[in-house]
Design a protein around this nucleic acid. Structure first.
Length: 120
RNA sequence: GUAGUAAAUUAGAUAGUCGCGUAUAGCAAGACCGAAAGGUAGCGUACGAGGAAAGUCCGGGCUCCAUAGAGUAAUGAUGCUGGAUAACGUCCAGUAAGGGAAACCUUAAGGAAAGUGCAACAGAAAAUAACCGCUUAAAAUUUUAAGUUCGCUUAAGAUUUUAAGUAAGGGUGAAAAGGCAGGGUAAGAGCCUACCGCUGAUAUGGUGACAUAUCAGGCUAGUGUAAACCCCAUCUGGAGCAACACCGAGCAAGGAAAGCUAAGGCUACUCGCCAUUUUCCUAAUUUGGUGGCAUGAUGCUUACAGUAAUGUAAGUACUAGAUAAAUGACUAUCCUAGACAGAACCCGGCUUAUAGGUUUACUAUUAUU
RNA sequence: GGCGAGUUAGCCAAGCGGUAAGGCACUGGUCUGCAAAACCAUGAUUCAUCGGUUCGAUUCCGAUACUCGCCU
């Protein structure tokens, strides 16, 4: 096994999110969209943002958990030094929320963005 | 058995792997960072979201506004009676009215015999009722009959006008002046009488709302509306944990008005208190951290008091505390196939959302004994 | 998290107990060779939704849904 990662770093302030959403490149999957921007750190920093108008707090929490879980598993395979923001696609109904679809989305998006480290 | 009424309770379970938050007197007199104070991370262990956590509709604690105080008024709220409570617009037990075959349910349920306002259209009239009609009297005109001195007179009727009486009748309207029957009258009328309704008094029962009985008033106290203004009774200062306190970082001041017999201090006035500079406008600065923050009108059990809400006493338990914000993912098994839904200072309620399961009490009906 | 305001035609809106003014837009007509402008005509039947008070509710009261603003 690899050495366990330290605690995951997250984006916290509103202006940090605004920076990523304005300057970063965006990639759209089936259920999530991802904004990616380079930063000057040694680590990847990520954040999740879901609109309050879409659904109730319980469903928003479950979306966040599933995205966070997926990111946690993929984290070791990513290149370092990026800010990443995950959004939920507005057009997708929330009843279709599924863990595996998000997993596939993330892999294809990170491949497109060229962040994935090729593992052999 | 079927149909229903009321109340209480529960809110998927088990196992495995990988993860999340808080605490930690264990590993540990340990590791890493730091001059130090101290901080960070790992392993292990313990604990880790509801009945509504929601809406923010009420009430309270707590904090600040002056120490939040007194009086008058305003504003706002509540509104049958008695009790419970820290308090409430909540709860319990009753009363009245309405609904239901019943168990039972619903009700912002004071005052229109203090005053003001409003009641569209329709209708005579919508609140000091006389427009039509009915009745009586007088006058005028006129018809018929009789008489005649041919001018008119008398009698009966009709029409019009004037004066008076009259609320029995009048296509309306949500609502029409207590209802209905009999007597009575020129015509009518609570004008009189019986029954019902209303109002008042007395007696009895009840703490009381009120109930029952008897008597009286004849009802000009006239209809409705107070979720129209209002009156009466009771209560009510304001803002809110993004309150507030402390540490750190950062910045830039300018203009206007008033100033000790003044102005200000979160409704006005008076008193009292605080403080000496205060208020307003424009510009500038503030992306951090700690506390507040989890032992409380707390939960559970038992006993006693009370119809009950609830109270008293004893024992026992304390088991969320985040700050982009913690419970997830995958696999397997089971069944009834898992609804509504996520704490953010804390409590007591109300309201709204909600798949089912279980329990208790009661009502009606059917069948059997 | 807390506090406050609002919802009327496609859009902007007045009204606040007696059945909804006005403007822009749309549609049709007049005018014109054709347009524009001008003039005329037309639309609310669930005043966000559900209950209550009242004879009667867009208006008054309560609940629900949605939208917007403020706090340091």
């Amino acid at each position: 096994m690899e050495v366990k990662m330290k605690k995951m770093k997250t984006l916290k302030k509103n202006y940090e999110f605004q920076n990523v959403l304005k300057k970063g490149k965006f990639y759209i999957g089936k259920q999530i969209t991802v904004y990616i921007e380079k930063n000057r750190e040694d680590e990847n920093i990520f954040g999740i943002a879901i609109s309050k108008k879409l659904c109730t707090a319980v469903k928003r929490n479950s979306i966040k958990r599933k995205i966070r879980e997926n990111y946690r598993l993929l984290q070791g395979n990513l290149k370092k030094g990026y800010n990443i923001v995950f959004l939920w696609n507005k057009n997708v109904p929330i009843e279709n929320l599924d863990y595996h679809i998000i997993e596939k989305d993330m892999q294809t998006i990170f491949e497109k963005a060229g962040i994935l480290i090729e593992t052999n």
